[in-house]
Write a protein that binds this DNA or RNA. Sequence first.
DNA 1: CTCTATGCAAAGCTTTTGCACGTTA
DNA 2: TAACGTGCAAAAGCTTTGCATAGAG
Lengths: 159, 159
Amino acid sequence: MSCEQLFLEELKKKGYRFTPQREIVLEIMHHLDKPASAEEIFAHVQEITKTVDKSTVYRTLDLLQEFGLVSVIDSGERGHLYEHLGTDKPHLHLACESCGKIFAVDQEAFLPFAEYLADTVGFEVSLQSTTIQGLCSACREKAHSVAVREQVLEETSSN
Amino acid sequence: MSCEQLFLEELKKKGYRFTPQREIVLEIMHHLDKPASAEEIFAHVQEITKTVDKSTVYRTLDLLQEFGLVSVIDSGERGHLYEHLGTDKPHLHLACESCGKIFAVDQEAFLPFAEYLADTVGFEVSLQSTTIQGLCSACREKAHSVAVREQVLEETSSN
DNA sequence: CTCTATGCAAAGCTTTTGCACGTTA
DNA sequence: TAACGTGCAAAAGCTTTGCATAGAG
């Protein structure tokens, strides 16, 4: 079933309505290639039409979440980011604390840990809403070279 | 070295000053038994004295973070939570999306996954600032029994 | 026709900031 | 006595909400 069909079904099931505004927001989400903030999504919507209010975008994102079509990432730096859940495999996110970039990672390697948590403390991990913080490889290298440079400077200045 | 000594050293090192307000906030953090919001920390501070402003609490929490004495947890539901990093082993946090409780988990079982990320995509996980979302065992059971009840209701109503 | 959804404006919350005054080293 | 830190009040983001009106079913 396509996203739109699923959306329609869910709306009907709950007695909600299918409006142009909701259609546009879903359309935008569908074409995102990476997680985006509410502000960014609103900007995309505005490129199509000025007749959708920001509050409607928020309300629609809530709906889409409720239907499981969209997930929210708590990115730390950049606040909440919304991501379309298409036919992608389940995945989790890495957020770089330095540059703010978000990366998607397949869940496979994480599953043993999820299983461990389920077995030991009975915690059921929600992969889609989990974001792992850290440093991406680019920022890691940058940090490393800075560290090296500082070390050199210290050695120089202490002479 | 005790927390207070470390705090003093770091302050001196950076040319910052040791003030009663900073002492009180550190004291409060030291006695927290679980992560707390800025609001909660401020409330605790107020129990001791009314002469510390909320903005000072925020500024001090920033300082403590900078010194590595405090870490911030992005709990989702409950916003930012601050946690004192004592002599505890490195750990990560689980946040229940239903009841909002935070749980600490030793890092050991997570390390293989962290290593996998480092090896495959060069991402360096920051354990202390990572929070895994999901359902705690209590909420899981609750959700399960609700689901069962709904199923029973559906079966009844369809007869 | 009924009841939901929307736009608009205002309010809420958490966190940050500007500034004059108080304090630390 | 020179910076730095603080309280106070205001601002800044981001998100939510109340309400009259528009619009879907």
